[in-house]
């Protein structure tokens, strides 16, 4: 296998949001949205980041783009730590890292035409002007499968899937290397989801893009990803290449999560055993001590409350954060 080219390195990233109360807005606590995550993204891959609502996956994506100022940690892109960059330097980097947002209804300004929306990044970065922009916008629209004649229309004239295509065109305008896709298809209907996923895959092939694909739909993540990370309550619990994670998950949470996803085949569903996790995800304001998952884990022991499990490479490229990673096979009943 050729040497892997790391496009982005994240080191012990933390994002704690203060909770303020009272007249003088005293800080009374923190939401530990992201609490120490370390990973690499390789050039040309699609790294899937999955987890349930509130696990911090969206915050992680936004923090990488410095949309939030992280509490601690490093984000290294092209040899520079983005956390330490001045605003102007960061602005230059943003040309290379773009984002596609979840909600195609809220992420496009309703008062701007399609041309204004897609050309805004070009104007902000002062890259092209006049006629060039005009032609560029049209070619971008064609690229994402929209009729270039639609440039003067407003977002409300489009369906959800078409709007998401506009968001994709905007993110491509600056020819980025890395695109953070934050749940790009979860607001769309089933028959439209496949259209947008196919588009993202085609664009990746054509331009050699790298994706961080944040989602909660585990079936779609299996389809689109090269490697997958499972996140729970602000921390990573498992990371592996796609096939390994889905066929040989080792963390009890990954195993339970995968068993809970319904499969569209009654013959398979009939035979499957679901692992029903008790209770809800605890609050990230006071996360459980030791292992974050211990309050719902069917295998939890005393040590799980005392020590935070190590993020351990149990086989090449396969990381698990569990004290009993070698002993979770008993949970895997298909």
């Amino acid at each position: 296998m050729p040497e892997k080219d790391v496009i982005l390195h994240v080191e012990d990233l933390k994002m704690h949001f203060p909770i303020k109360r009272g007249v003088i807005q005293r800080t009374v606590g923190y939401v530990h949205a992201v609490d120490g995550i370390t990973f690499d993204i390789y050039r040309g891959e699609t790294l899937g980041l999955v987890g349930e609502s509130g696990c911090g996956k969206t915050t992680a994506g936004r923090t990488i783009l410095q949309l939030y100022k992280p509490t601690a940690g490093q984000i290294v892109f092209e040899g520079k730590d983005l956390v330490k960059l001045k605003n102007e330097e960061m602005r230059q980097i943003r040309r290379k890292i773009q984002m596609i947002f979840q909600d195609p209804y809220a992420s496009l300004n309703p008062r701007m035409t399609v041309e204004e929306i897609i050309s805004e990044p070009l104007l902000v970065h002062n890259i092209e002007n006049g006629k060039e922009i005009h032609d560029h916008v049209r070619s971008l629209l064609e690229l994402v499968g929209l009729n270039p004649a639609y440039v003067d229309r407003y977002p409300h004239e489009f369906s959800g899937g078409q709007r998401q295509r506009i968001g994709v065109a905007r993110s491509l305008a600056l020819k980025p290397d890395l695109i953070v896709c934050d749940e790009p298809i979860s607001a769309l209907d089933v028959s439209i989801q496949a259209q947008v996923v196919n588009l993202l895959e085609d664009l990746q092939k054509e331009f050699g893009l790298t994706y961080l694909f944040i989602a909660h739909d585990l079936s779609m993540v299996r389809h689109i990803s090269t490697r997958v990370i499972v996140m729970y309550l602000g921390v990573f619990v498992e990371m592996a290449d796609r096939k390994t994670l889905y066929e040989n998950p080792m963390h009890p949470y990954s195993i339970a999560l995968l068993s809970a996803v319904p499969i569209p085949d009654p013959k398979v569903e009939e035979k499957r055993k679901r692992i029903i996790l008790e209770g809800d995800v605890p609050s990230p304001i006071n996360p459980p001590s030791g292992c974050r998952f211990r309050t719902r884990c069917p295998l939890a022991q005393a040590i799980c409350a005392e020590e935070r499990p190590e993020w351990k490479e149990v086989e090449p490229g396969h990381y698990v954060a569990c004290h009993f990673w070698y002993n979770t096979k008993s949970l895997q009943r298909r």
Binding site: A194, Y246, P264, V268
Partner: peptide
């Protein structure tokens, strides 16, 4: 149009 969780395609 649905990807399958139990298939590596």
């Amino acid at each position: 149009s649905l990807p399958r969780l139990d298939m590596d395609e």
